[in-house]
Design a protein around this nucleic acid. Structure first.
Lengths: 346, 346
DNA sequence: GTGAAAGCGCTAACAC
DNA sequence: GTGTTAGCGCTTTCAC
């Protein structure tokens, strides 16, 4: 296969007997062009398999029709599901996506964002690996529109989309409380993340309002293998052991499942479990897992919408969009008694 | 936030008191430059937060330091895991990735590949949505180096990486045969795909060589929801029901699990199951699933290596790299009797 | 070893 | 409504 020079706009122009400006106008739907000429241009372009050179177009216009996405990991279905949603949203508006993973590391995040920025993308969507998002100076400096996703503390100057974490976690807790559970265990990935902290608070509030004891919160990290070991002591003490567990991420959910199995605890007979995020394996699992479903598709679409708003008016105010989650009730939770009726004295 | 023009190479050159050519040479490690000058250039570049404009660089050199990846879906952990592996491989060699999903549709695949090609990427890695890979004319025409992954029939003119599907499936079948299973059911996604057909053949061979009856093969598609319905008749007939199932993809594995549960069949007590692909949920599941693990990371790295070879010598011959899978034996399979001893007559 | 200058393919201003 | 042309920021001869 010999590498040949690609067809240029000039080639098309010559063959169609017009100027490159006209070709550009036709192909970019930019200025009114005589219909007959336009038809001819399009036909020649098709015949020659003409593909615009984006580098040249970009150099001239100063911005590429591309949105850059940086996520903490490409091996996590939550992030890849989000990317898929963004891709669906930008499709058909002529934008492509470039994606990069920060591997959950701030230094890498910074480097990856810098690299993405050198494409002069139309915008940048980032799921920061910590909620401080220290790479913000980079994006500020470049002037590229940015939308942050999911984890961000101090939602001041940056547009962002997220989920109502507190409400989602309350919903999970209320479900368990309604099933008569009084002692809950929260299995969190990392309390360094604002979204995880919010979820914890949601559970705490629900319990407090029901007049029940505060939940135990255990931090299990992001690595599945170690979760059972960390969890074991909390699940073994037969006496005041939690009867209901809320796992705050899908990895945590998997971890709880492993731990319970290793300890010979049956779900939901011995412990009820509410998971987070909603994947195919949760419904195929035995028992199917009751879980809080985050609207990934909406999140992706919203990120793109917000980005477009920033692109249209870079000077405008930052916006935030918060989505609600749904609880998919399945079979990993069971009633162990009547819900405690809240006692209001005074 | 006011959008400001980014720092250009010219800015750096002026401030460092040199020409843009020198800056280019320093930053691109291209020609020998006086060490002191080089130091100054680098320092100024850092001070100004200079980021090269890739569009300009690209326009000049004719190729972008970017590899385009097209997969059938971004919602499938096999494909996203592959993308993650490629990203790891290209990282640090200064390449970025642009990714796009064909949604399993040939027309979209074609369109997405055309769009990717307009970036004039250094290369293209594609997991075709059918093994015919009809968009090959596009890539041939553009002259961009291409590597196909996983599904490709007639491995002639195009470099590709894949897994030894036949051997992998044989391994699964032999494991079951060794456990005394004589009647196997194969749960395939789609027989349109070469890799799936090869897996079927692997099972058939193993059975034939053991002198056992041919497996039943049922095609369940890519949508999880319908799998149990399709599978039900094959799992219900109490008499000659298969005692061992081989699921040829992770979705199929999930489908078998759902179907078995719906039918009240226990794994592995009533049926043994070997899955394909190896994900976290398989080990967290109860029981943990015995599965064929595809070496995703090697596949990604190999795709990049092959691509580099094509980039280095576009005229060279296409190469293929085939990897072996491993069987992770867990608890979804059990022995139901001694293996049948193969009887060789004559 | 360094700089001047041409030009990659496109778009946008402007002239007609 | 169409063509001419300048120039985006970089890399790469080619002189020096």
């Amino acid at each position: 296969m010999v590498s040949r020079r690609a067809t240029t706009m000039r080639d098309v122009a010559i063959r169609a007997g017009v100027s490159t400006a006209t070709v550009s106008n036709v192909l970019g739907n930019r200025k009114a062009v005589d219909p007959e000429l336009a038809r001819r241009v399009r036909q020649v372009a098709a015949e020659l398999d003409y593909q615009i050179d984006r580098a040249a177009s970009q150099l001239r216009t100063g911005r590429a029709a591309v949105v850059a996405i940086v996520v903490p990991s490409l091996d996590n279905p939550f992030f890849t599901g989000f990317i898929a949603a963004v891709e669906r949203a930008v499709q058909g508006e002529g934008y492509d996506i470039i994606v990069s993973s920060s591997n959950g590391d701030e230094a890498q995040e910074r480097a990856r964002i810098a690299a993405m920025l050198s494409w002069r993308p139309s915008g940048l969507i980032v799921v920061p690996c910590t909620d401080a998002f220290p790479a913000r100076d980079l994006t500020d400096f470049s002037g590229a529109p940015v939308v942050a996703v999911d984890r961000i503390a101090g939602a001041d100057a940056i547009s962002h989309v997220s989920v109502n974490n507190r409400a989602a976690a309350r919903m999970a807790a209320d479900h368990l409380i309604g099933f008569g559970h009084r002692h809950l265990l929260v299995c969190a990935s990392s309390l360094q993340l604002a979204n995880i902290r919010e979820r914890c608070e949601g559970v705490q509030q629900a319990l407090a309002e029901a007049g029940l004891p505060a939940p135990s919160i255990v931090e299990v990290g992001q690595t599945l293998e170690v979760v059972p070991t960390i969890l074991a002591p909390h699940l073994s003490s037969a006496e005041d052991r939690a009867t209901g567990i809320i796992a705050l991420t899908s990895t945590a959910t998997l971890g709880v499942l492993s731990a319970a199995r290793d300890l010979g605890l049956a779900v939901p007979d011995d412990v009820s479990l509410v998971g987070f995020d909603d994947y195919a394996w949760m419904t195929a699992s035995t028992p199917p897992i009751t879980a809080v479903r985050q609207p990934l598709d909406m999140l992706g679409r919203a990120a793109w919408d917000l980005l477009k708003r920033r692109m249209a008016s870079p000077g405008g105010a930052a916006e935030r969009l918060v989505f609600s989650c749904r609880l998919e009730v399945r079979r990993s939770t069971r009633s162990i008694g009547p819900p405690l009726v809240k006692c209001i004295i005074g």
